[in-house]
Design a protein around this nucleic acid. Structure first.
Lengths: 119, 119
DNA sequence: TTGACGCGTAGGGAAACTCCTACCTATTGT
DNA sequence: ACAATAGGTAGGAGTTTCCCTACGCGTCAA
């Protein structure tokens, strides 16, 4: 439990999942993770998209707590804030035994199959 | 890596993240996890929403591979298919060291703070 | 066979999303 | 002081989401 997670904490959870629903925003997170903090234009260069549109995406990520900005002169350096992703993992955790069971079942199925028939 | 995950596998990833972006759909997954497979009406009873709307949500979940249906007479029993959630966890994994670093930093900060000043 | 039940699909409307082109503010260099 | 740079904001258009009310299709019970 990263935050209080008691009851109406759903609003924060909602913002995080909604932020992750867009491929451009997931790509921004990947860029910040792989290349470290960057100003907006450096990020925008990697997309076929005008800068104001990317600014909007950055706002969504910021309001979800997934990135933070640090002003440096006239630039704004964005950096990854991975905290909310830990909450996603917490959310995922109770499902883990289900997908392990499914994978186990698949494995056993394959074990009982002649090699020729495998997908 | 649960599926091939080579290149244009992004479409499947997109469908999963998009499916999880809605609170009703996340709640459906929780109900199926906690109470096991159920027909549509039993699920619909837990929401302040008409049944056709829930049917739409079930379609989105089905196309994301997160639920599966099994017909039984005139009922359709939906069950959790957690496989795609394993892929979400895979997606999450490279971020883990970042949130661990952040939490570590926060812990050290708290250690250096007098108890009275803690949030 | 007829009626009720379980559920999906069609179609529509309000709101939200995602992109765009201006445009505005703040900072820096000349 | 002035022009150029970095980046946010406003407003608008096209698309998608999410809910609704009808309605259609298959199944079961009388």
């Amino acid at each position: 439990m990263t935050t209080t997670e008691s009851g109406a904490e759903t609003a924060a959870e909602d913002r995080v999942f909604a932020a992750l629903a867009n491929a451009t925003r997931r790509e921004v997170l990947r860029l910040l993770r792989e290349r470290g903090p960057q100003p907006v234009q450096a990020l925008a260069d990697h997309f076929d998209m005008r800068r104001p549109s990317l600014s909007e995406h950055l706002r969504v990520l910021r309001e979800a707590g997934l990135v933070a900005e640090q002003r440096s002169g006239r630039q704004r350096i964005y950096r990854l804030e991975a905290g909310p992703l830990a909450e996603v993992q917490d959310w995922l955790h109770p499902y883990e035994r289900f997908w392990r069971e499914q994978l186990k079942g698949l494995g056993e199925l394959l074990d009982r199959m002649p090699d020729d028939d495998r997908p």
